[in-house]
Design a protein around this nucleic acid. Sequence first.
RNA 1: GGCCCGUUGGUCAAGCGGCUAAGACACCGCCCUUUCACGGCGGUAACGGGAGUUCGAUUCUCCCACGGGUCACCA
Length: 548
Amino acid sequence: MYNKKLADLLFPNVTKTPEEVDAEFPLRGLPEGAVVSRMAPSPTGFVHLGNLVQGLTSERMTHQSGGVLFLRVEDTDAKREVPGAVETLIESLAHYNIVFDEGATIDGDNGAFGPYRQRQRKDIYHVFAKHLVAEGMAYPCFCTEEELEEIHKAQEAEKANFGYFGKWAKWRGRSIENIEEMLGKGMPWVLRFRSEGSIENKIKFTDLIKGNLELTENDIDHVLLKSDGIPTYHFAHAVDDHLMRTTHVVRGDEWLPTLPFHLQLFRALGYKPPKYLHIGPLMKMDGTSKRKLSKRKDPELALTYYKAEGYPVEAVYEYIMTILNSNYEDWRRANPYAPTSEFKFSYKKMNPAGSLFDVAKLRDVSKNVISLMSAEQVYDYVSAWALEYDPDFAKVFTKDPDFSKAILSIGRGGKKPRKDIAVWSEVKAYVSFFFDEYFRIEDSYPEASDKADIKAALEAFCESFDTNDDMNAWFDKIKAIADSLGYASDMKAYKNDPTAFRGSVADVSMFLRVAVTGRLNSPDMYSVMQLLGAEKIKQRIADICSSL
RNA sequence: GGCCCGUUGGUCAAGCGGCUAAGACACCGCCCUUUCACGGCGGUAACGGGAGUUCGAUUCUCCCACGGGUCACCA
């Protein structure tokens, strides 16, 4: 009687029953084994690697099993919400090829289980909240922030455990008159769960990633509804994931401590909990110790960081897959061009511990990914990136698309493609010497080089250079120049007795390379010269000769 | 402090009672080579410690140490 009265007092406008609400959400009728999962980010405007790790896991599990992946926006914390965050969220997930079958979209909702924005589901939560009150499993609490702080301090002083429970739960056993009075005064209240658990009891639980777990029962009367009537994550999770027929919940393992409470909630509601996959955190090296990647301290946690640096989406994707499933790398090596969907993703391969995010490894993955792209693809990516992050370079780079594509074609496409590029932001430095706008002598000749020899070699080259020569004819001419100057044209002979020569054809090539590219290192010189053309080459050689 | 999770080379990681303890990245050396990159070959380098169970523990159990996470009207 008491409970029923309290329920009506607290939720006078709620008339529906949980059964009625439940019936409004259809069963999915998916085949056995089909996974239904979701991404449920909060719209803080900050999309990070963790989201991607979790999202990719859900995405693979659902789509690989013929299930459903949906997006639910957990906007229950109005204080943290950033305007436009939902849009950025959806856009950046799309950027990383996470496509939803259902859920929140920029234009609204898509699917039969909505609304997919939690603040719009307030009435739904209230039905379940009222039910819990009526069943004696929840009660209002009028504690102010100050009072809660006092409790915390008192617990600290007593060396007691923290939290609203037992003797500290001062509103747990109040009379209905007492509550009515507070309500009458218009005092704000939150709805708390009446926990019957005890920390003396252990519960056994099997997590799909962590395995068999032994956890301590929850004895804390957690908040279900905040004073604005919006649910906390916990309550929304239980209600929504039941109604939306989620079969698998993938989330970070920072949720493990509250898992006993969630399980308790499902039981109180009378629903079967989903299967859980708790993923270990992404760590980074901080000095000599590891720590979880943090929003505040680590810019590399944000997805925007990778976009700005110019990591191709595919590279970030590949790298995360290697972290998620340790056998992914081997599979990829065997199937360089296969779509990821052909890989058999398995949660059993997931590591229960947290892993260190290794930028060096990411770069390596990225180099491999880019080395397999066509020059056109690379050109498109670089142009798009530059347009946004380096407009000056974009102008130069896109002035003559065929020229730029030809540059990118050097050493691309064979069995052993060059792997010079890890991120788009490095392309400018890689190609700059092809453009007069950027060309300059970056590396100087080694001290030991004889300036007269350099000049003689360069001049001889200019006289004999013919763009119609094929690679062999071209190099034969360079060899001839080497010979004429007392430099070995045969490297073997030179290595046998370096003292017999002034140097080798390698040195002569280097004289040319510096003059033409401004650097000691470059891609294949013949290709470079073919692209540059006789006029530019001769001009550059003349310029450097006059400065010698 | 309570609770929980974790611990194989510098890093990511295979392993699931018996192995010379895979592989990848990074690093070093050699080879190829007009430079660089690619590629090939090779090398350095690991089961946190202590008890037990067992004929035998990296694998199982317990304790310790260390690392991480969590204890909000945030998710």
